[in-house]
Amino acid sequence: MTLLLSCKQFLTELNAYLDEETSAEERSQLQSHINECPNCWVVVDTTQKTMRVYKGAEPQAVPQDVSERLMAALRRKMADKRGGC
């Protein structure tokens, strides 16, 4: 009979669980906690979804004027370098 973790102990190990950085033994202990504790199951599920929505978000286009100034600065730098050779 494995001793069940408290929710606080579980939360401390949440990242290790999410990032799969646990040993098989630790993982099964964490897994048994989730199976028994609906609140922690919800926390795991919604944290995974939080990470997923951020990973999946496409960055917005750089505003055109900002991008143009970047490219202009870069062209100047490139010209300087060639001039200096």
Partner: peptide, 10 residues
């Protein structure tokens, strides 16, 4: 910090 950040965003 990552744990806190993830939990706060969640």
């Amino acid at each position: 910090r990552l744990l806190r950040a993830r939990l706060q965003l969640r």
